[in-house]
Write a protein that binds this DNA or RNA. Sequence first.
RNA 1: UCCUCAGUAGCUCAAUGGUAGAGCAUUCGGCUGUUAACCGAAGGGUUGUAGGUUCGAGUCCUACCUGAGGAGCCA
Length: 436
Amino acid sequence: MSAPRITIAEAARHVGETVSVPGWLYNMRKSGKIVFPLLRDGTGLMQCVAVKSALPEAVFETIKDLTQESSLIMTGKIRADERAAGGYEMDVESIEVIQRVPESDPYPITPKEHGVDFLMDHRHLWLRSQHQHAIARVRHEVIKAVRDYFDSNGFTLVDTPIFTPAACEGTTTLFEVNYFDDDKAYLTQSGQLYNEATAMAFGKVYCFGPTFRAEKSKTRRHLTEFWMVEPEMAFATLEDVKRVGEELLIHTVKRVLENRQPELKLLGRDLSKLQAIQAPFPRISYDEAVKILQSKGSEIKWGGDFGNTDETLLTQDYDRPLLVDRYPSHIKAFYFQPDLERPEVALAVDVLAPEGHGEIIGGGQRVHDPDLLLKRIQDEGLPMDAFQWYIDLRKYGTVPHGGFGMGIERCVGWICGIEHVRETIAFPRMLYRLRP
RNA sequence: UCCUCAGUAGCUCAAUGGUAGAGCAUUCGGCUGUUAACCGAAGGGUUGUAGGUUCGAGUCCUACCUGAGGAGCCA
């Protein structure tokens, strides 16, 4: 008696059949004796058609009185129709209401405009909207593409700890955790130091997990909790790091274009901007970047780090990500290998996304010489004992090695063309945003 | 932490220092192909908080709270 249950995404394969679709009422347009409930089930949207003369009185009245986001199981015959948004619609035959949202407390997010604050307060519900849905699917695709790239290129996933006993880089502010008897612990700001250990064990590795920065940053590019993928390779130089970063981005963009075009179109993304993401990416040195910026009127002097406006200025002449390498050592972390021909610069590279989306990759070659590492740790005033295991890696078979970190949210934001990273993660954590 | 801007109905926003308004949402009525449907009607307010100026403050001043954008720092 009961019709087969399908999802909206499967509707095309069931034309002419009577099926049941469980879902939620996204919206409804009424026109007297004919109503058009718009059904949402997580896989898509489908317009249903309920005609009064074709239905028992009670069924029609039940449908007509439904409220937004009520949960239900709609049963009817699937039919192709150009007038419907998804191309298919359902002639309703019966309905089972699971929960009717009471009109005394209606669903707060209406099909009209809302402000950011209101939407963020209702993030748990906002996720149901088409835009947020599309972004989440692109994020899923990005993560899958990134994992597939590494998995099929000889990398082993070895995840690194979230609780760490000391700062990885010594600069950024960390979240302190008072629990362990041993010592104070901190939430990780990078898995990189541990990656170096696993790279010496497995050759090529990556870790992929959440990262925490207690910075008082309040911009559209910052989250206090964000996800980062970090590859690390033994026997690798700066050039290898640059090549892998470029390949990873090209592979990822290609996969999103292959599998998530409907989502990108819904987001209004200019696909030609993504189709332009091909090898080779432009490569310039920090020295050249400073000259370019100065010629464009920036106040930057050699030795200073780029601000957000500098990054935008630098990237606006290119249609693909820009690789900038050989930064002054003093603005990079202690573990970066200095250029032996120019010790004042580090073999570090940042990848700046086009269209003002900023730095999405940062990495480089690491110090592999034991004496140099000891000196760097001392110069930075870092606690030697906390880094003993890290120094061990240089005592027992040290090799040149390198890697990078890519911020998933910034990457998704760039690919989607979203201004603010807060929409690229389900529940963003920011300086003034802990709930929901 | 600093700078700039904002806070009025559930939501998005109006309102020369002079009666608190509209659209959406909700309720009621109408409409058999709607596409953020449309048409008519109703209910809905301690204008972020506390002071102050004024005959009179949503509007001007001070402080605070909340949020947004940016700076610094970073992915």
